[in-house]
Design a protein around this nucleic acid. Structure first.
Lengths: 177, 177
DNA sequence: CGTCACTACCTCAGCGGTGAGGGACCGCGC
DNA sequence: GCGCGGTCCCTCACCGCTGAGGTAGTGACG
């Protein structure tokens, strides 16, 4: 908009284009949703570099972090991992295959339920995660460095309200396991 | 937090787990970044249903919308499309292949530059986009329905600041073409 | 007019995901 | 005890994207 692009982003350009081509439509929702998509992309790329430094990738980190977060004895079933990662069972199977081959997790059958598999974080897996986690948090901190503390808090709160409004409230076992 | 899960989302659960397992780490950045990732997923799924009703998918819509936004004569080069879509040239080639086969765009060589390709929206393409666009906006509006007008404005502004802070400010030709 | 760095687009192998489907197992009801 | 719906995990074909690499064309330079 105007001449100086000092506070405009890519979405401002797109909104201006729509305002010119389709002034009859209210495109304001794009101002929120388009930016979320763009930010997700930036975040993803930044995180990938960090993970790569530790020989990991985002899907692997995702699984290791879920196991680590679960606390001793660092065990979850593929179904629990599927729910926290928000991917299909096929994707979890693949991720576990890769992690197992690298020795970061082990798979064993549950004693209580013959269908279930118990995924356990190995010592190597825990080390890998604990090494990567501070770096990962540094990356996230750096991404947010341009915002004030107040902005960050407001943003987190608005995003939470958004998620809650969408009805993505986890029922206890959806995340816990 | 606390007992009632009335205003908690999945990220609150994760943050509580980290606070228990790694109280030494400041995981607050996840409150923003994790939620952005989750929201992007929800948005993506909602949009996909809408596009499917019109025989489209997100990548196709993305390209058609960029051409439509550009205004008469609805032409852009693959490079320009690549920049607005934030994907690699190989991805654009594939998208154009699909759209060309469906008759929604045409590809022609540029007269001014022998290397360049000119992508043009066909009448069918414009019809398809103009049919899908209001539905698409309805979907986005519905996603945001749980937030107040003030929340939406604040959220859009904070997200813009975030993007600008990341340095994702489009130089004129990065988006325009 | 030949060279050379650069750009535009396409090609292709590989990757991680989806979604449909299959086999094994659980637990309820009869 | 037996069937039977439901659950758990895996398999596999397909899909879109990446990233490296190839070809063709451009434009500046001497």
């Amino acid at each position: 908009m105007s001449t100086g692009a000092s506070s405009g982003d890519a979405m401002d350009v797109i909104l201006a284009q729509w305002a010119r081509e389709r002034p009859d439509l209210d495109c304001s929702p794009m101002g929120v949703i388009g930016r979320i998509s763009q930010l997700q992309r930036e975040v993803f790329l930044a995180q990938r570099s960090t993970f790569a430094k530790h020989g990991l990738d985002a899907p692997s980190f995702d699984v290791l972090a879920a196991l680590r977060r679960a606390g001793e004895p660092y065990q979850l079933t593929p179904t629990a991992l599927m729910r926290t990662a928000l991917v299909t069972s096929g994707a979890i199977t693949q991720r576990l295959d890769r992690l197992e081959e690298k020795g970061l997790i082990t798979r064993g059958r549950s004693e209580a339920d013959g269908r279930a598999v118990v995924v356990t974080l190995t010592e190597a897996g825990r080390s890998a995660l604990d090494a990567a986690l501070p770096d990962h948090l540094d990356t996230e901190h750096a991404l947010l460095a341009g915002l004030s503390d107040t902005d960050r808090e407001q943003l987190a709160e608005l995003l939470r309200r958004f998620l809650v409004a969408l009805g993505r409230v986890p029922s206890a076992e959806q995340v816990g396991g």
